[in-house]
Computed example of a mutant assay.
Amino acid sequence: MKKILIPTDFSKYADEAIEVGAQIAKKNGSEIILIHMLELPGQMNDAITGATSIPEVMLFKRKAEETLKSIKNRPYLNGIKITEVVRLDGAYQGINNYIKHNHMDLIIMGSHGSAGINEIIIGSNTEKVVRQSETPVLVIKNKVNEFNVQNIVFASDFSKDIKKPFQKVLDFNKLFESKLKLVMICTPNSFKSTTAARKIVSDFVSDFDMPEYTFEIHNESNIEKGILNYADEKNADLIALCTHGRTGLSHFFTGSISEDLVNHATKPVLTFKI
């Protein structure tokens, strides 16, 4: 894990992500890239192409660069290689473009979640990154004084398309020497017998050099609720799962378990795109 990207809007949620990123970077000798997307009003976007407000745009950019430098000097970041990046772009679009042109091993984002009509209509930049990023995304929902991941809950249906991202789960688990708890959530619409579920997981893990792990079936009315309840029951420090990255009408009608968890979980959530 050489490079960790942490987008910041200078909010307390972003600061909480930076603090976690510092702990991971020190543990693994990683570089942190702090990136701020300077979203400009429409008239200022026009200014970039020739109007008279360019000095004002540059003032905002300079202020953002100064703020990033002040973050870089925080004591908990001492000893970590920090790169500061300011881009004139929309938050999600800019982050996505940066990822496409620069290899990152992990993205860490803070999120306060959303609910009700805001969740349906506007969502959040964190959710959009979770949905589309080819790089694993760690979402921090609350302040974490010590990011000591002793218990990781990985929830899945353990289908064949999960195998590639699952290796990244094992790599993350190895980094923290965590206890890995595999769980299959069975709902009324996706019921499997205990025998069938154990066979699926046994076949799945046979392709990997597995650490010590446990596997359980958890019955619940829906998958999201099942994952959250199981994670609480097992006192998990981290919830890990894979996302299909649905977009458009498919996403609107079927929803995304990963995005729902990003919104509603209080524990950190680590997602891997299939």
Results as ranks from 00 to 15, higher is better:
A155N: 04
Y213N: 13
L77N: 03
L138Y: 07
K164R: 14
P55V: 11
R198C: 11
D161W: 08
P7L: 05
A196T: 14
V205R: 00
Y76H: 13
P55W: 08
I80D: 04
P136V: 01
L182K: 10
K225E: 14
L241P: 06
S53N: 12
L238F: 13
A196P: 00
L170V: 12
L182R: 11
Y230T: 07
N28W: 02
N222P: 00
L261F: 10
T52F: 14
H36A: 10
N142G: 02
A196N: 08
N263H: 07
I82G: 05
S256W: 01
T195M: 06
P268R: 01
R198V: 06
E16G: 05
S156R: 02
K26Y: 06
V86W: 07
E224R: 14
F172V: 01
H103G: 05
A236T: 06
F204R: 03
Y92G: 01
A196G: 00
M104A: 00
G116I: 09
M210Q: 10
P136Y: 04
I152Y: 06
F272W: 03
D161S: 13
K174L: 03
S30R: 00
E127M: 07
E146C: 11
I32S: 00
I152K: 09
L59F: 12
G94Y: 01
N97G: 02
A91M: 07
D89L: 00
P41R: 08
H244G: 05
R74E: 15
I54H: 03
V169L: 03
L40I: 05
L59Q: 15
A240V: 14
A231S: 15
S250K: 15
K27N: 08
V130S: 03
Q167F: 09
R74F: 01
F60N: 04
R62L: 10
L228G: 09
I82T: 08
I223F: 10
L261C: 10
A47I: 07
N96E: 13
H218Q: 05
K141N: 14
K100T: 06
